[in-house]
């Protein structure tokens, strides 16, 4: 990827992150989502944040272990999953600005997961990104809800 194309992709992904994080809570503050849909909406924001982190990190591949970045790559997904507590959804949905901020934190943590992984060692960001996205999507099928079968 050329430098200018990379910059364009970064700008587009960053814009998508902000739009996906901020617009829905503010524009549809009167709509109450069920827990599953809410989890899945977070998974979309997380996917955008991860993609952004991977693209930013792609400019400078790291070939020697940078242990400090591993901490960021592992602590961020943990925090992201802890933020997905279903009990907070009712509250955040009635506070649009807080809800949007909550989403931005998701995006930031996802970015840090992928970026931190790639800065720890090339290739690790992808593994961390896949793991976080699987957790985010997986949460929608039983965390805070009992699915009827």
């Amino acid at each position: 990827m050329t430098a200018s194309r990379r910059t364009l992709v970064i700008a587009l992904l960053a814009a998508a992150c902000v739009v996906a994080s901020v617009v829905p809570p503010i524009e549809s503050s009167s709509i109450r989502l069920d827990v599953q849909t809410h989890h899945l909406a977070h998974a979309v924001i997380i996917a955008l944040g991860l993609a952004l982190g991977l693209v930013i990190a792609s400019g400078r591949p790291v070939r020697e272990e940078q242990p400090a970045w591993l901490l960021a790559a592992l602590a961020s997904p943990l925090l992201a999953m802890l933020l997905m507590i279903p009990a907070t959804y009712d509250f955040t949905e009635t506070h649009p600005v807080l809800h949007a901020l909550d989403h931005l934190v998701f995006a930031a943590l996802s970015l840090l997961t992928a970026y931190g992984g790639e800065h720890y060692l090339r290739g690790v960001g992808w593994a961390a990104a896949i793991a976080l996205e699987l957790m985010a999507v997986g949460a929608a099928f039983g965390y805070g809800i009992i699915l009827t079968r």
Binding site: P77, L78, M81, L82, I85, P86, A87, M135, G138, A139, F141, G142, Y143, G144, I145, I146, L147
Partner: peptide, 20 residues
């Protein structure tokens, strides 16, 4: 990690259901 966090959250806040 996912199920662990869910269980810890359930332990802290038992009203949050989990699908068995």
């Amino acid at each position: 990690m996912l199920v662990g966090i869910a269980l810890i959250v359930h332990w802290l806040s038992p009203s949050i259901p989990l699908d068995p």
